[in-house]
Nucleic acid binder design. Sequence first.
RNA 1: GCGGUCGUAGCUCAAUUGGAUAGAGCAACAGGCUACGAACUUGUAGGUUGGGGGUUCGAGUCCCUCCGACCGCACCA
Length: 563
Amino acid sequence: MNPTTTEPTLLSLEQLAERFATAARALWPQAEPVVQFEPTRRAEFGDVATNVAFALSRTARRKPQEIAEAIVAKVRDDVAVRATVAAFTPLAGFINLQLVPAFWQRVVDDVLREGAAYGRRAPAGERISLEFGSANPTGPLVVVQGRTLAVGDTLARTLRHAGFDVFTEWIINDAGSQVDALGRSVYARYRQLFDPAAPFPDDGYPGNYVIPVAEQLRARDGDRWMHVSEAEAIAPIARFALDALLTEQQAVAHRFRADFDLWQSEQRLHDAGAIERGIARLREAGVVFERDGAVWVRTTASGDDEDRVAIRSDGRPTYYANDIAYHYDKLQRADRVIDILGPDHHGYIGRLNALADAYGRSGTIEVVLAQQITLKRGDEILSMSKRAGTLLTLAEVIDEVGVDAARFFFVMLSTDQPLTFDLELAKKQSNDNPVYYVQYGHARIASVLRRAGESHPDALAAAQRREGLDALVEPAELALARRLSEFPATVAGVARARAPHRLPKYARDLAAEFHQFYDVCRVLGDDAAVTTGRLALCIATKTALALTLALCGVDARESMTRS
RNA sequence: GCGGUCGUAGCUCAAUUGGAUAGAGCAACAGGCUACGAACUUGUAGGUUGGGGGUUCGAGUCCCUCCGACCGCACCA
């Protein structure tokens, strides 16, 4: 930049909004206008728009359109505004602006300068505990957990990018009665390895996945458990099985690119006295009472349907006691707790809110519900039942369609929408598969850049130095830059609304914008200045595309190979 | 029965949380490669946002009421 320049400075969108707000205040001092510019829905409405005139309409007692026109007339006097805005169009009450090319050129410059940090906000110090995945360690992970894993991990990555201090955790439900059922199931399968006629318990886990666990047990201990009573064998065998299945779950989660800061054993919380501590605090809050020999929590005080038992009359804790202990623990460590739960858990929200209330932290426990997944293979709907043993595991889904496709599809949908997941479509390497569409865009840019290294090395080097951006003036170029500029707000929106599905949507939009640009604008051409500018735009787009995919946990590929 | 979530193009889904003429992809039809990857792109067609009522400058979004789908309603986990 030339420091002696006399040109008026280019305003940012925020600065522009301030100027408009100032103008509005000057016209209607009694109103308190909030001006925010957002991308327009349609190109004919310009680049950005604000609806401030509607909000002012009531206090100003004038029609929105008149207000919009008055504000525009006033703000036009501002030199800096005129340097930033190419056209003002008050229309039907909206104030539509078309911005100068330099505004969009600066966006490209921002992306190139910030690279993988584009759209990142400085840490604001808010600590969030994010729990997701969390399955019973009594079987393999299934597709529903795949959805919570993909959604949770994507949300974690995005929240971090948005400046939150995120701590991811998984609770291992290793303290309940299902552990006993698992022990007896493995014990029975183990016996069957020696005696095929040995009985299997009616309430055991019938799934085939129990058998390999029994085989592992035999590999380790031989026939040792054939010589001890079932009563004696169950507990150690259950522990062995829990370890084996948990290890397997961790491996699959890791393979699915979802890693955790903490794998919290429920049993360990018990052993450490966390339940007593949590309930003691509830007592202090005055929401604990006893009835019929059991310890209850008055969750109805917070709007729950009915009060909940924490400690049974026989002294054993309920599942809710685990929630009490664990959430108390989490609230000690974090400012806010987010649980991503499956569709069958929405009855819990009331009792979790009650905990936040009782702990004096109302509203800090938040639940994101991910709806049901229906699996489909073409036209065939796959019914899944753990009890019937007909489940398709997450590992099998990954084997079939790959991590990229599975994650993209799981994240693509709003969490409050039930998801029909078509295995056939997800693994199709064709144009109706959105994963490949986006990855193709990235690979296409990579290809152009590779080629530029051969044919236009000087222009490529200049582009990497962020030169030549003022050559970007074509509508397709500016449209692409405009799309790039939406990334930071997209990240912030995903974080604020806990809406990770907007990332795949954005990735698709950005890729489409690039393809359109590519179709109209030849990148590697005769004009060195134009080539440089377009290469810079390509690099910026590649960066943003890769970043968006990275937040989704999907690989950005340098090339595509069709199999 | 009570409570909750949801219902948007033929199909799968969006709609920046109350903003403009409800948008994409797939499927259908008609175009575009002597140039950087055609896994691309341009266009056409497709809608009473389940039905009805209400709130207001403005409603897919908020309220009421029907219809339909799913989920929950344990001293199970």
